[in-house]
Write a protein that binds this DNA or RNA. Structure first.
Lengths: 130, 130
DNA sequence: TGCTTCTTACGAAGATCTTCGTACTATCCT
DNA sequence: AGGATAGTACGAAGATCTTCGTAAGAAGCA
């Protein structure tokens, strides 16, 4: 089956799997299952089915050269994160990224280091945007 | 029926309705439908059913004193936005709000005014966190 | 070889989301 | 009063998501 033409946002279960693959790198179903079943009670074939579906959808790529297929995320973590943020901005913040940022920052105590990092990013943006 | 005990994140269709109620204030099904059908082709009873379900779930409050019931969002916009951001941070950013903020900022050109606003917020945070 | 284990493939059930048709009731207008 | 209009309630269909059982093939081992 050819992959789906467009890509809707990954579901919760799909995102959970993507995070494992981003963090640990390409993995078999067995390995992903071992990882996730530490956190949550989930069957092996459930994981298999999900990863097969994700491959059909074009979210994952599969290396079938070995008996145990090896899966990896098609998109880099940052790309998917960017899509998810964009999606949330448009659905919940009327398209205003700034509102989301303000909301995110105000609902959390950041460390001095984190604040400094963000400042630095703002500096760079201001410089470049000029 | 009593409202649901906890509140999972609102679905896409639900969030769309919430945004209308936040922006325009309490409204009847008719009014919400008139608003949303400008953007999207959707039936009146679909809207009605959704808003009834949302009331059961505890997302909306309903004033039944008039023939046309008047609905309003139970939670303020900022509260729901905060929950949505928190949810995305935990599902896609490993719990790091800072990563989400950096991702959001770097994927968008902000105006000088917006950057200044964010700086001001950072100032306030630094002051308060001290 | 023959038994056990691991893996993929597949079907289907149950849950939730979105949609709308239909029925019923209240209100309005002539 | 009586037909037209507008509203609510409800059931159910179709889509998607998540789950798992079962079957069948491949690999390992006694």
């Amino acid at each position: 089956m050819p992959p789906a033409p467009h890509s809707p946002r990954p579901t919760d279960a799909e995102l959970e799997i993507l995070r494992v693959l981003w963090t640990l790198g390409p993995r078999t179903v067995r390995q992903v299952h071992d990882e996730l079943s530490q956190k949550r009670d989930v069957g092996y074939t459930t994981m298999l089915k999900l990863m097969q579906i994700m491959t059909d959808k074009g979210l994952l790529l599969r290396d079938e050269s070995e008996r145990s297929h090896i899966y990896r995320a098609k998109q880099k973590e940052a790309v998917t994160q960017k899509q998810l943020v964009k999606d949330l901005v448009s659905r919940a913040f009327g398209g205003s990224t700034e509102k989301l940022v303000m909301q995110a920052l105000s609902s959390k105590k950041a460390t001095a280091q984190e604040i400094a990092d963000i400042r630095q990013l703002l500096d760079k943006m201001e410089g470049g945007a000029k």
